[in-house]
Design a protein around this nucleic acid. Structure first.
Lengths: 219, 219
DNA sequence: ATAAAATTCACATCTTTATGCTATAGCGCT
DNA sequence: AGCGCTATAGCATAAAGATGTGAATTTTAT
């Protein structure tokens, strides 16, 4: 009996400057029945140039980050603009927070270390096609750290009513709208806000709002 | 020769209500030389009760989410309060965005599907000990979606200078400080902000700031 | 090259915020 | 009963923000 056929063969693109790695990737993956590799280049520029020549554009691109010329992250935005449906899996020796978040914010679907062995890489590519987002554990650690609870509040804790007020500010409401929402007078809102400012050592709504932003660790 | 010894044996705790799964986990893992399992309970309440009796507290807890009584996520905050250094790896049949983000925000170090085979689970636990954050691809997908670029701007796109202004607002700066940062006059900042407000259909700094919040998808 | 857009700045006006001071009513605690 | 804290509210003032109009200069695109 013939090997199982796949309703959707994954059409691969590869961007990787080191020829040895690039060839190893494309040869190994192209040999798998689940994949076709339609474009494999050493630079992002070349990839984008040759893209229009293809009969079928890739559905999944495996991209290095440390590329000569345009980096994989800069290229990511361009590539996703040209092919909005494409999924891009980053492959990099670098797993620092800055690059990881930049890649994710540009829409990378996953982020793997370059040391990932080929058979595992194949598994990960299949997982992408199945709606997953493979991430090396060291990469994912940046992400979990990002979501980790912020230290409660360095200042004295706020009373329930003061927290209502802060919520209003964080929702971008004016004093007037906060007053309406809480069914109190404008001056009462002023009173509470004054108290909140004292406790949190701030002196503008803007500072309240930035205060709750999750820091991107490398900033 | 004796099998390799481990400078740091990982001291495990397990919280899982289904006895069959709990036993399979603790038996399999306790049989590995890298692990010691010091506490294995069917509920979070029981886990916290028995915690003080231990000679050595766990350094890594494997916790189910769908527990009777206190859920794994509610318990996560309590557990991390009692043992601030502990790392908690969630194990759940549920991989919906709500639970994933809630767990991460409570400080979970990773999040795996319950279907993870035991040998792979062991690998993931070792990766946690090595500073990694294992996440099942379907879990990580929520995360990548969270970081994915927001649809550029439903309004007309902003000029570079206008983007500088918006960045200033998002950083919580006053008009004066934005002017200083960009080395322009206060009135110039006013001009740009007026223009930005027109383009984005807002009319306060606060609306600019809420605008950039990344939605948690399930809200 | 010429029009359109972007960047800069000024002056005016009105609204919203920030901040100080004061005060009353209700609650829980000693 | 008295103390401290919370929640409410008012009045006043100065600073910051929002908004209109106008205009000169530079950059970008047709």
């Amino acid at each position: 009996m013939a090997p199982p056929t796949f309703a959707h063969v994954i059409i691969l693109g590869i961007i990787e400057d080191q020829a040895a790695i690039r060839d190893a990737l494309s040869e190994y993956l192209a040999a798998q029945p689940e994949f076709t590799c339609v474009l494999s280049t050493a630079s992002h520029e070349e990839f984008m140039e040759r893209l229009p020549d293809l009969a079928e554009p890739p559905t999944l691109v495996l991209s290095d980050i440390g590329l000569p010329g345009r980096s994989g992250i800069e290229g990511l935005a361009i590539l996703r603009h040209a092919l909005p449906m494409v999924e891009v899996l980053m492959l990099s020796v670098y797993t620092d927070a800055e690059r990881v978040f930049e890649a994710l914010r540009q829409g990378a679907v996953g982020y793997l270390e370059k040391t990932t062995p080929l058979p595992l890489l194949k598994e990960h590519l299949l997982q992408v096609a199945a709606g997953g987002s493979p991430m090396s554990p060291s990469v994912a650690r940046h992400v979990t750290r990002y979501f980790r609870p912020l230290p409660p509040t360095p200042a004295e804790s706020l009373t329930p009513r003061e927290q209502d007020i802060v919520r209003g500010i964080e929702d971008g409401l004016s004093y007037k709208l906060i007053a309406d929402r809480l069914h109190v007078s404008l001056d009462t809102v002023r009173s509470h806000i004054r108290q909140v400012y004292r406790k949190l050592h701030v002196n503008s709504k803007a500072e309240i709002m930035v205060r709750r932003q999750r820091p991107l660790l490398f900033w």
